[in-house]
Amino acid sequence: MGLIVPQRLWRKPLDAEKIKLPKAEIHIIPDLCKGCGFCIEFCPKKVLEKSDQINKRGAYPPKVVDESKCALCGFCTAICPEFAIFTIEKKNEEGCEGGKNE
């Protein structure tokens, strides 16, 4: 969830379940990755980390730690020099307000 609760407001908002934040599907094409680590470093939600699986190019591609944290900002896609990662929005039953522009 993208919900951040600061300390002084302790209560979970009543509409916390209802707010429609986009849900992401993260796709990594391991063999394209050359292991530069940009996606891991620049992800604002710290969704990715280095995996221990070596790929064809001898690099360690990223792996997803927590897909639900992804805010679909698309920065990993934009920054990847090898086109090895992209995100798409999960189509859930209620529809996603958050994904209008993708």
């Binding site: 908002p13 009543l14 707010i19 934040l21 986009p22 805010a71 679909l72 307000e97």
Partner: peptide
Amino acid sequence: SAVCPIAAPNEFDVGLAT
């Protein structure tokens, strides 16, 4: 606001809404 992917409790609603 509709497309923003980040939500937090609204201070104005004393944290009861986002």
